[in-house]
Design a protein around this nucleic acid. Sequence first.
DNA 1: CCAATAAGAAACACTCGTGTATCTAAGGAG
DNA 2: CTCCTTAGATACACGAGTGTTTCTTATTGG
Lengths: 200, 200
Amino acid sequence: MTPTDGKPGRRRGQELENALLDAAWDELNDHGYGAFTIDAVAQRAGTSRAVLYRRWPTRDELAQAAITHAVRTVVRTVPDTGSLRGDLIAMLLDFNETRSQFAAMLSVHLGAFYAETGQTIADLRRSIVREESGPTVQEIYDRAAARGELDPDRLTPRIANLPFDLYRHDIMVTLQPLSEAAVVEIVDDIFLPLVRPRPA
Amino acid sequence: MTPTDGKPGRRRGQELENALLDAAWDELNDHGYGAFTIDAVAQRAGTSRAVLYRRWPTRDELAQAAITHAVRTVVRTVPDTGSLRGDLIAMLLDFNETRSQFAAMLSVHLGAFYAETGQTIADLRRSIVREESGPTVQEIYDRAAARGELDPDRLTPRIANLPFDLYRHDIMVTLQPLSEAAVVEIVDDIFLPLVRPRPA
DNA sequence: CCAATAAGAAACACTCGTGTATCTAAGGAG
DNA sequence: CTCCTTAGATACACGAGTGTTTCTTATTGG
């Protein structure tokens, strides 16, 4: 392992490539895809365009690579607090920490990207979800059903996605992380009443 | 009234201005704000850039004007079918006709615009809602409450917006109008159960 | 009918980003 | 220590869009 701190000297191989993709991602975050230029990425990474062109032939492929790279670095955790309510609130608040900026960025800056590639946010989400392919929220629902907190018959696909759809909607519309009150509202006032087992 | 059809000859005044703003709006729709150029607008409008520069000094002001102009031409209707369910479904399906493209366009193409102006979709919606300032969905809720179809105590602000938030979320994520089934699902499976008066 | 106005065409200098090519020197492999 | 890959710098031709200016001519108002 070569020392990674101190004066960077001249970076190579994987270290350099990560730095390039990070710079590209930051550039996307700060200025959006519309103003996403190879030049700016090179400057931010402290290198020259040639280094970028050696790896990615076009702007779009660099952007794609940067997005994929950023996605890969997101770690996903599925909480297990012992209650459905606690799990969902924890999960959404964790999203606030780890993903709200990511989601906002995707929503706001990538319009031109979607337009050019013909993709939609839904498409991108699918490929991200496939990429992660780890444990999912379904675990939370399964545990809740086992505890009798949730009626599986009431959990239609749309309702299963409801808390996350509402979370995502808020992010896309306000570009800010949700307040804890908003998260609690989504869970307590909307989701839980819809899935709670009815007293027969 | 001068004849408005036939060979357009040389347009002037309001007629020309409308044509310019329409062309700008179409250009935004087709290619997004990222690829929104004065040149393209001039070409689409069948005129020269000078004509545009005489009216709007910058690209951004032209885009702003085009958006405002497009917003102004949207007519809003509030249905009155006699039932809450019917009103909401009618309203959302009407959105499908009149606004889904508009909403999709706003979500997707205007990222760079938001980034530059610092506005969010929420801000833009506020100014649009203010602009319209006509009858609102509140009317529908009031009538439903009067008929006893809706418990006003359960209608928190978030729940009042819920059908529209979900509608908007779907549009932003899929960039397509919602299927009628999806609209019915939002109303029947999610909204109505949350606001129906509980048998005391 | 005439004069004022403004549409529309065209040319210009300018900026910014692209993509390629060339050169140097850093730093790893042998 | 030496060679060889390649990071990083720099220069160039090119295209696309901007914003300005000048000129013409259609159209309108008086």
